[in-house]
C-alpha cells in the first residue's frame, strides 16, 4: 500500500523535476522545485520520519525564498538550450551509461521495507534503539543520536552552515578590493 503511494509520489517528483529543468521561465521553475521539496517532505512523513519532515518543510520555505530572491529582481530573459559540453548527445549517452551501470547496484540492495539493520544484529542502529533511552535519557532516539552518540556531526554541520552563510556575506560585500593606485592589477596590459 505505502509502496504504491510512495512510487506515485516519486513519479510525480520526477515529472516536476523535469518540468523545473526544462521550463524557460525561471520563476515557474523555482515553484516546481518547491513542489518537489514539499512532496519529499510528505514522503518523509509517510515513512516514519516526522522530525525530518518538519525540518525539510522549514528549509524548503527558506530555499524558495532564497531562490526567488535570486530570480525575481532580474530580467527573466529566457536562456534556451543546453551547454555544448562535449555536445549534448555525447553527454546524454554518458549519463545513460552511468545510469545503466548504477542500476545494477541499486537492484542488489535489500528489498524495500527490509532495512539492512535487520540483517546485521550488531549494527549501530540496533544498539541505539535498544540502549538509547537507558544511556542518554532521551525518549526520541533521533535526538539521542544527533546530540549524543554522533554529536561531532552536529558540531561540524554547524561549522558548515556558518561557513556557508558567512561566505555568502563575504561574497555580497559592497567593496571587496582596496582601491588600486597605479594600474589595473588583474588585467595585464601590454
Amino acid at each position: 500500500m505505502i509502496e504504491a503511494l510512495i512510487s506515485m509520489l516519486l513519479v510525480f517528483m520526477i515529472i516536476a523535476a523535469t518540468i523545473a529543468l526544462e521550463m524557460t521561465d525561471l520563476l515557474s521553475a523555482v515553484i516546481s522545485i518547491g513542489a518537489v521539496g514539499i512532496v519529499v517532505s510528505i514522503c518523509f512523513l509517510l515513512v516514519g520520519a516526522p522530525d525530518i519532515a518538519s525540518t525539510q518543510l522549514v528549509v524548503e520555505v527558506l530555499t524558495i525564498v532564497i531562490l526567488i530572491r535570486a530570480t525575481i529582481r532580474h530580467d527573466l530573459v529566457t536562456i534556451d538550450g543546453d551547454r555544448e559540453f562535449f555536445g549534448l548527445t555525447v553527454t546524454i549517452a554518458l549519463l545513460l551509461v552511468f545510469f545503466i551501470f548504477g542500476l545494477k547496484a541499486f537492484w542488489n540492495l535489500p528489498e524495500f521495507g527490509v532495512p539492512a539493520i535487520s540483517e546485521f544484529p550488531d549494527a549501530a542502529s540496533n544498539h541505539y534503539l535498544l540502549k538509547g533511552f537507558e544511556e542518554t535519557g532521551s525518549r526520541n532516539i533521533l535526538a539521542a543520536i544527533i546530540f549524543d552518540y554522533r554529536g561531532v556531526d552536529t558540531f561540524a554541520q554547524l561549522c558548515a552552515l556558518f561557513a556557508g552563510i558567512w561566505g555568502a556575506f563575504a561574497i555580497m560585500r559592497v567593496q571587496s578590493k582596496k582601491k588600486k593606485k597605479k594600474e589595473d592589477l588583474y588585467h595585464d596590459k601590454k
Binding site: 518523509f44 520520519a49 522530525d51 525530518i52 525540518t55 525539510q56 528549509v59 527558506l62 530555499t63 532564497i66 531562490l67 532495512p115 539492512a116 539493520i117 549501530a124 542502529s125 541505539y128 534503539l129 532516539i141 533521533l142 543520536i145 544527533i146 554522533r150 556531526d153 552536529t154 554541520q157 558548515a160 552552515l161 556558518f162 561557513a163 556557508g164 552563510i165 561566505g167 555568502a168 561574497i171
Partner: peptide, 21 residues
C-alpha cells in the same frame, strides 16, 4: 532505522548553507 534520519537531518542543513553561498 534512526541513523539515516540523523544523516538526512544534517545533510538538509548542509544543503541550506551551500545553497545560500
Amino acid at each position: 532505522d534512526p541513523l539515516p534520519q540523523a544523516m538526512v537531518l544534517i545533510s538538509i542543513i548542509l544543503g541550506l548553507g551551500i545553497l545560500s553561498l
